[in-house]
Simulated assay, not measured.
Amino acid sequence: MTTTGSLHSWEVSTGVDGPGTRFVAFLAGCPLRCQFCHSPDTWYRRGGHPVTADDLVLSVRRYERFIKVAGGGVTLSGGEPLLQPAFTREVLSRCHEMRLHTALDTSGFLGDRADDELLSAVDLVLLDIKSGDPATYRKVTRTGRLGPTIRFAHRLAEKGISIWVRFVLVPGLTDDPANVDAVAAIAERVPTVERVEVLPFHRMGAPKYEALGLPFPLAGTQPPAVATIERVRGQFHDHGLAVF
């Protein structure tokens, strides 16, 4: 019997959610409340609509040939897909059976919910490390702890699963040199980390907060300066990491 999940939306995109052209499904629901979140409309499962794994995989099949020719695959994102582990497991497993490259975009905060069967269907994890300093991590996420993400990263490495680390650079929040070095130290100790993506903070999600009647925590924060971005990229590079 197929499982049912809560899906916010899906799209076909290139270059931002894993290699090649990808079918990206955004699942609804997330336990974190990151100050820089640009998708507050994905925080709650009720913000999505019910969809069976059968139906979502059928949507993927419509693009299967195109995705394969374009060297892409399927990415489950969110929200937080590990908030719906059974649904995530079934969708990724069935896509894997179709010989599609699979990616999981997660904070790792709920990594313990990903059982071995789920991880056996994952080719790549896009691991969002919000901060390398535990106190800053709590400030950024308002509800989260750094430990589960680190534990999940090492578990992925033990299984030989490739990791792309993502780090959102926010002036006055995550840009402290010591915090950046702490993220880099976490990444360099995980042997299957292939690259680090430094993602400059942007304010494109602000209209969503306004539409939902929510205050945007970083309304007064500007995107990082080019010099700051280059300094942070350099810090990761100095730890021997490939930086994008």
Results as ranks from 00 to 15, higher is better:
T42M: 01
L100D: 11
A28H: 10
W10C: 04
L82S: 07
R65I: 07
E188F: 00
D175M: 06
T174G: 02
P40C: 10
T75R: 05
Q235K: 02
L173I: 14
C95A: 08
M1L: 01
S93A: 15
G111I: 11
T228F: 02
G108N: 04
E188G: 00
P171A: 03
P200T: 12
S9T: 12
P81Q: 08
L241C: 09
R46P: 00
A182M: 02
A121C: 07
Q222V: 13
R142W: 00
D105T: 09
A206H: 14
T52I: 07
G172T: 11
T143K: 14
C34G: 06
C95R: 06
V226E: 15
D17K: 01
T106C: 08
F152P: 13
M1D: 06
L199A: 09
T136V: 15
D176H: 13
A185Y: 02
F244C: 04
E158W: 00
R89N: 05
D175S: 14
A135R: 14
E11K: 12
D175Q: 09
F167A: 13
Q35Y: 04
G147F: 01
A135H: 12
H101P: 03
H8T: 09
C30Y: 06
V51Q: 11
L218C: 11
G132I: 10
H239D: 06
A227D: 15
D55T: 14
N179T: 07
R151A: 15
F26V: 08
T143S: 14
D116S: 12
A70N: 12
V57I: 15
V51C: 03
V60K: 01
H101G: 06
A227Q: 14
G79N: 03
R61E: 09
T14M: 09
A206Y: 13
T4R: 10
M1T: 12
C34A: 05
G205A: 10
H96G: 07
A135T: 15
D105W: 02
P19Y: 05
G48M: 10
P215D: 11
S9A: 12
L156F: 09
L214C: 07
R203H: 08
E188S: 03
V140T: 10
V140D: 04
A242D: 08
Y137M: 02
